[in-house]
């Protein structure tokens, strides 16, 4: 049997909103250690890696490892039926055809059950090696979302250039160009407002706005985002999910032809 309970469905609601633009379906790998998802978008340009540790759940039981293929569109619809304060329980039996989502109101007066059919999926796992990145930028997630949105008006791609002076985001198109520079913050009252740059070597990479604008749907999950970059390798854009885990997005850079 598999059963995982979160005291508040808000986290799971936000996770679904953060992946639904990129993934229409995905396999949820459930084991003693928690729930993991690794899936590429249809174009194989980006990858979502989600990790929810079992100790972050209020209750977690997984008698045997399960791979459950889920339709993300349907799952998003189901999670939208939960209030943020509702308790959410995911339940499946061994060799399941279905997964059950149970939402219980804080007063326990309302109990809703939604059953979703599982789908058979071909697993395509990418092996991602541990990488030391030339630049790691930590910055407010809302600021990153704002920059992606603002620069998307100027072109289809955003160039991120990181040096010891700071990080520069730029976009250019037929009607003009724009650039936004962020310096490392000297002193901040609140850690979540800091811009922190850890640079070994300067990096300049270009990425499609479309995907970055999908990644920033994770902004409600965490006040800070971590961008890891090295020359000629995919960007890693990471958001922590409270004390329970993280979501990482990988995005292949654009190259000059």
């Amino acid at each position: 049997m598999f059963e995982a309970r979160l005291a508040q469905s808000a986290i799971l609601k936000k996770v679904l909103e953060a992946v639904k633009d990129l993934l229409s379906e995905a396999t949820f790998e459930c084991s003693d250690s928690g729930i993991m998802v690794q899936a590429m978008d249809n174009a194989h340009v980006s990858l979502v890696s989600l990790n929810l540790r079992s100790d972050g759940f209020d209750k977690f039981r997984c008698d045997r490892n399960l791979s459950m293929g889920m339709n993300i569109t349907t799952m998003t619809k189901i999670l939208r039926c939960a209030s943020s304060e509702d308790t959410v329980t995911l339940r499946a039996w061994d060799n399941p055809d279905n997964i059950i989502f149970i939402f219980e109101s804080p007063s326990k007066e309302k109990l809703a059950e939604y059953e979703m059919k599982l789908i058979n999926m071909d697993q395509e796992h990418l092996g991602i090696p541990e990488t030391m990145y030339s630049c790691v930028v930590k910055m407010p997630s809302a600021e990153f979302a704002r920059i992606c949105k603002d620069l998307s008006q100027f072109g289809e791609a955003i160039t991120i250039a990181c040096s010891k002076e700071g990080v520069k985001f730029s976009a250019a198109g037929d009607y003009g160009n724009a650039n936004i520079k962020l310096a490392q913050t000297a002193e901040v009252d609140k850690e979540e407002e800091a811009v922190c740059i850890d640079m070994q070597e300067p990096v300049k990479l270009t990425f499609a706005c479309r995907y970055l604008n999908s990644f920033v749907k994770a902004t409600p999950l965490c006040a800070q985002v971590k961008l890891s970059m090295s020359a000629d390798v995919p960007l890693v854009c990471e958001y922590s999910i409270g004390e329970i885990g993280h979501i990482r997005y990988y995005l292949a850079p654009k190259i000059d032809d």
Binding site: H44, V45, H125, G127, A157, A252, D256, D257
Partner: peptide, 14 residues
């Protein structure tokens, strides 16, 4: 115009 890379050019299928 820069060309979009594919993720599978960087990581291998496991």
């Amino acid at each position: 115009t820069p060309v979009q890379n594919d993720l599978e050019e960087f990581y291998t299928l496991a």
